[in-house]
Amino acid sequence: MLDIRDLQVEVSGERILKGVNLTVNAGEIHAVMGPNGSGKSTLTHVIAGKPGYDVVQGEVVFEGIDLLELSPDQRAREGIFLAFQYPVELPGVRNRQLLKSALDAVRLHRGQEELSAREFDKLFKTKVKEIGMDAELMKRSVNEGFSGGEKKRSEILQLSMLDPKLALLDETDSGLDIDALKSISESINRRVSSDRSTLLVTHYQRILNYVQPDCVHVLVDGIIVESGGRELASELEASGYKSFKDKDIQE
């Protein structure tokens, strides 16, 4: 589904990603772990097409399409969703309005008809309940006055509404209490199917108690230094990233 080859990315002349290789097959959940500043968010941003990053080498291919040629909204309509580490506020823009426009755009692209206002509201209500979102909160503007945890839940609600092929979850687990973590994990697990994939970015292995990744990658200083199964996460938990950093230097 997603193929990243030798991805090298600069921000303001500084090399952040230094040759990332990553393949996520349809139906898989991959976890990318790494210390602060290692380039995890940068990776998700580049996949989603955020402006301001120079891709100096490499390619990002999604279902045979060269993603780097597409604008962010085109990528989203192709089926890529990014749950932001730091979701922004859109003052005055209602959650319902954002989601209706987004879903209309995505469905139109998939060759489906737009949902009627009634159908949309029904779906919206169901999802709000399922995620355990406070319905009152959804009447506010997008992310306006939301707590950290509420923002994360709202991202998951959007994910669940738009039902993309590939979800990039950037530290969606951080800053959550245990109940919220469980509920979000359930949403991620509910996604699992043969045609949906998830890239879970985190720097705690806590969420991996609830979500079973098929593969774990360790990103240190812009390079994936190790990939493996779930056991890699436990190893990290025990010894920290330091051992991986040292490995990196030796290589």
Binding site: K50, P72, D73, A76, R77, F84, A102, A105
Partner: peptide, 10 residues
């Protein structure tokens, strides 16, 4: 970017 990432045109 946030809005466009949801599939909405610029």
């Amino acid at each position: 970017f946030y809005s466009m990432q949801r599939g909405i045109s610029e």
